[in-house]
Design a protein around this nucleic acid. Structure first.
Lengths: 242, 242
DNA sequence: CACGATTATATGTCTAGACATATAAGTCAA
DNA sequence: TTGACTTATATGTCTAGACATATAATCGTG
């Protein structure tokens, strides 16, 4: 749940303190950079112990709404990063979560020494082995997305022998490479012949493109390009915040 | 900053406890649904007071890594929502953050009683007044996005008199309507004549579309459609997580 | 004035208790 | 078997302290 809650249903004091402060921040009454009252002032105002206001302030700090500086005080932070934050774990899971029938089809799989293009795409310098995978996901037997993936075997040696004819590589990786960072780039293209055929759409039809580059502690893991039919599939995102 | 930190630089005990648990979750040693040790067990294991382990567990709960249930215990949560989470605050701020010169141009503004199409788009039933705004954002004098927005005056009466010839409506709203929820839908289209001209691209060129629907406590505020040139602009998103 | 040492102070962490409260699990009766 | 009642228990919140620690501000000195 979000931090955004009505003050009415706050039985506990620290939540009320947190909500009070949050409200002032979010209405702009306390703009970014504003110093919020010291703990001892809040203790006096609310008539509680310091641990109680500390808990409220700590949560606001964890939520990045305020910044706490020793000896200086607590300050309202600038509104969250303007840029986009996107999370997409796994297409199979996404389709299943939509309540639709998941279908998967491996189109091609190649194990090769990384070409210059591969190295560039993965952002690695040394020449090593990679697996290139091409596959298609469908929902209720309608093409949902085509996937073009490169896995760096130096980071994920098991991928050389994994059976991607049954399990999609995204799901496989999710279970074999636990904690990763990723960068997504979303763009739009028009379908060329090959894409049009794979997605069963017309040549020149719009496609949504997601390029995802994944790594773990500075080690490249995989680069993947997903193509979705642009006029049918939709990436829905919901969030709370200013 | 993320919760993911090395155990080495943890001088404090609660952070070490939090990191220990987090590690087991993220490596899959404790899979989703697994019950993590009770507070009193952790108290015994780490030889500290309950408040210390409680702080560690509370932060993990706030970060949505675990779920805490009274009487039952604390459980590893399923990996975050499969679907997408996207945050885009404000195009002006986005362009400025990119270090590029921001340009804004109001193309059209109309105040009217909501048509059936308007009501449908805003998701309201009662007929009321709305403001329809059409404008263009540019970066370094190159078209960056065109915006087509509808504001519900029942929720934001001030929007009727706001001067959108200087300030983009997104920025204006951000400062006048503080705490909102939003839903984004990303898709792709090909440019029609009007869009092509506005974005200075060819007819039939791909466009990235972001439809955002914003509300606050069940009240509709605004619905906006943003069109970006699909092959030039890119929505970059970075995140941490499985 | 510039720079290093000192001090004051706000936050950071922690304790050893307390009582509240939701709820899983067990008990018992219909 | 099922439903209602009771109980045990893990978490939720809170207190009134304590000492640690980073650092803004002050003070002194060259």
């Amino acid at each position: 749940m979000s931090l955004a809650t009505d003050a009415a249903d706050q039985p506990t004091l620290y939540k009320r303190i947190r909500a009070d402060i949050e409200k002032r921040i979010l209405t702009g009454e306390w703009p970014p950079g504003h110093r919020i009252p010291f703990e001892h002032e809040l203790v006096a105002r609310y008539g509680c112990s310091r641990m109680t206001v500390n808990k409220a302030l700590s949560e606001l700090a964890q939520a990045d709404l305020i910044e706490r500086r020793r000896r200086a005080g607590s300050f309202v932070r600038r509104p969250q990063h303007q840029s986009a934050v996107l999370k997409i774990a796994d297409i199979r899971a996404e389709i299943i979560a939509l309540g639709r029938g998941y279908g998967y089809e491996l189109i091609g799989r190649k194990l090769r020494t990384a070409t210059a293009a591969d190295r560039d795409r993965l952002g690695v310098k040394k020449a090593g082995k990679v697996v290139a995978i091409n596959c298609r996901h469908s929902a209720d037997n309608v093409p949902f997305a085509v996937e073009d993936r490169l896995i760096d075997l130096a980071s994920v040696p098991d991928a050389a022998t994994a059976d991607f004819s049954r399990e999609p590589p995204g799901s496989w990786l999710l279970h074999h490479v636990p904690w990763t960072e990723a960068e997504h780039t979303i763009s739009a293209i028009v379908a060329d012949d090959r894409t049009a055929e794979a997605l069963d759409i017309a040549v020149g039809a719009p496609c949504l493109v997601i390029d995802r580059y994944t790594w773990r502690s500075a080690r490249t893991i995989t680069a993947v390009r997903l193509l979705y039919p642009g006029d049918s599939h939709r990436l829905v995102a919901r969030f709370k915040g200013g």
